[in-house]
Structure formats: C-alpha cells, structure tokens
C-alpha cells in the first residue's frame, strides 16, 4: 500500500523525512535498549536543563526513565575506534516539556558523532541541523555560539564561582545592565569583551568582525575561526552567545534552533568533548537533538477525520464491508460505524 505522506501528522512526516536524510549522509540508526541507572542522570543533572528525571525502584535498583538520549549514547558508544561513529536515533524520552507541567513522553530525534570530529564533521553536522530545521516546514533560525570563547573570556575577566554564574546568567538573559552592575568600573579588557558578547549583533559577518577586533588580545582566535567556519554553512544562521551551553559539557560550537510558532528552542546541540571526558573517554563528539514534542505547539495538523463514514446494520454489513474496501483501494479513508439501536445516543 502506498503511503500518502500528506495524510501523516507533522511529527510523523518530519521523523520519516529526517531518518531518510540522516541515512543519505551515511549515518546508522542507533537503538537504545532498556533503562539506565538513575546515577547516570544524577551525576549529570545540569546537562538536562533542569527538566527532571522520573525514577523507578526495581528491587532496590534505582533506574530512570530516560530523560535524554545523548548521555545514554555517550555511555554506550565505543569512542576508542579509529574514525567517527556517525549515528542517528529516534527515541521516546520522559521529562517535563519546555512548557512545564507534569512529566510526559516526548519524541526526540537526533544525531551524534562520537570520535574523530574534525572541521569537515562540524560543517556536515551544521548542514544536517539546517536541513533538520528545514524539514519542519516553517521559518527557522539557528543560533550558534562557542563555549570555548565564553570560557576563555570568563577566565580572563577573573569571573569564578558565583560571579561567573551571575555573569553567564546576564549573558543568557541579554542583560547588559545587570552585567555592568556586576563588574562595576573595575572590569578589565576581558570583562569589556564579555559585555560585547551580550550586545553582539546577530548577523554572522558583523558578529565575527566585532569579535575579530579583540580576538588576538584575548587569545580566542582559534575558537573564532571555528565559529566563523560553522556560521558560514548556510542561511538562517545567527551568532548569539545567549544560548548558553553548559561549560561542564560543551567545549566548542553550541547550537540552538528555533521554529516560527514555537515559543521555545526546538533543537539544541553542540561540540561536547568534555562530556565524553567525564565518562573517561578521550575523544571528540558533536551532536544535536530535535524535540519533536515541542513542535506539537504548532497546532496546524488536520484532525483525524475520515473521508467517508459508512453506517451499517445487520442487514447491510457485507455490502458495507465491500464498499469500504473499494473506497480504500481508491485512496479514500473510510470509517465503518454500526447504526445506533433505538434509544442509543
């Protein structure tokens, strides 16, 4: 039977086209099995963006309903192999959605490259992100930042501990007025550069040019070169350091994708060698995830209404079945419904 793609829901259509896309780049589908120990998530809470973990106690063993896929992949994949493991997945995760509320089952689809990440891989992954956002079928924006630049500038500005937390919070909120209060008049050239990150123009060329003016002095030239290469990948990319990227995990480019009509980021990812290091794996890694559940906010799917409804009773059941088969064979969707008995609603 031929599948009419147009009759599928947005989530189903998007997932199918994305899996075909990732296979066209030679990526293998990775299937996760079973549960993970709660400790995996307890030790890496900040990677989960505070969206919580649902746990079950199985005979004294505390296990988690998977809130995210990347951690499970990183834990399982052998990063010692020569070359990169290029994988994609389509999994259910259990966590609070970005819109808050109770725990829910959400579909997450994404890509992970573990080991052997070079500049070609970074550009390839960025291309895949743009195609992924494009597959949703709406206007999109891909914000890119660089965790290494933020880290070096924070170190140079002598922002450590609580002061760094506050400064990074100002960056995430684009709150230059709060940052100026925080550093006062005592800030050095790095503190001034941090202020520049908050108020950076989003157009890639203008942002890179602005940072290039200070890159040599701050020792961030290599990181800026990397950022420049990635943001040149295609249209719809902007430089925005407010998107965060936990410094405990990310060490290079960080991505966050927005789709018109969805009030939260629908995609996030980045270069996460540091996360691998936390698992004792000395290798590079990059990946991203599309939160298909968040796309449900775009409520433009047609409701599940059949093209035809055939009402039957004991006298015409055989005819009704035959007619329904004929109509379905011609591409119509048909609902068979038994006629109500007298007195039934």
């Amino acid at each position: 039977m031929e599948i009419d793609i147009g009759k599928l829901k947005r989530e189903e259509r998007t997932a199918l086209s994305l899996k075909a896309l990732y296979r066209s780049y030679g990526y293998r589908e990775y299937k996760l099995s079973g549960f993970d120990d709660y400790s995996l998530y307890a030790e890496n809470k900040s990677f989960l963006d505070g969206r919580g973990v649902l746990t079950l106690n199985l005979g004294g063993r505390l296990i988690a309903l998977r809130p995210d896929v990347t951690l499970s992949v990183v834990k399982s994949v052998d990063a010692g192999k020569c070359g990169a493991e290029k994988l994609f997945y389509d999994e259910r995760v259990y966590r609070k959605s970005a819109s808050g509320g109770e725990f829910t089952e959400l579909r997450q689809i994404g890509v992970e490259v573990v080991g052997g990440v070079d500049r070609v891989t970074e550009i390839e992954v960025c291309e895949l992100i743009l195609s992924t956002l494009g597959a949703v079928g709406r206007d999109y924006v891909l914000d890119v930042s660089h965790a290494g630049i933020v880290e070096k500038i924070c170190d140079g500005a002598r922002l450590f501990g609580r002061a760094r937390e506050l400064a990074v919070d100002c960056l995430k909120r684009k709150s230059l007025h709060e940052f100026n209060k925080l550093v006062g008049d005592g800030g050095n050239e790095y503190a001034r550069a941090f202020g520049k990150l908050i108020a950076l123009p989003s157009a890639p060329s203008a942002a890179v040019e602005r940072l290039r003016e200070v890159a040599c002095g701050l020792g961030i030239s290599a990181e800026l070169d990397e950022l420049e290469r990635v943001v040149a990948c295609g249209d719809g990319i902007r430089v925005d350091f407010s998107i965060g990227g936990d410094a405990d995990y990310y060490n290079g480019v960080v991505f966050k994708g927005y789709v018109d009509g969805v009030p939260y980021a629908a995609l996030s990812g980045g270069r996460y060698d540091k996360l691998l290091n936390r698992f004792g794996k000395n290798a590079s890694a990059i990946g991203f995830a599309l939160y298909l559940g968040e796309l449900c906010a775009i409520d433009d799917d047609a409701t599940d209404a059949p093209d035809e409804t055939i009402v039957y009773d004991d006298g015409n059941a055989a005819d009704a079945l035959a007619r329904a088969r004929r109509l379905r064979a011609s591409g119509r969707s048909v609902l068979l419904r038994r006629a109500c008995e007298k007195g039934e609603l």
């Binding site: 924006v141 914000d143 927005y258 009030p263 980021a265």
Partner: peptide, 10 residues
C-alpha cells in the same frame, strides 16, 4: 522579551 519572538521579530 520572549526568546523565540526575539529571533523572528528581531
């Protein structure tokens, strides 16, 4: 300002 609105109504 809403973060997504900032991207599309910049």
């Amino acid at each position: 300002v809403n973060k997504a609105a900032y991207k599309f109504k910049s």
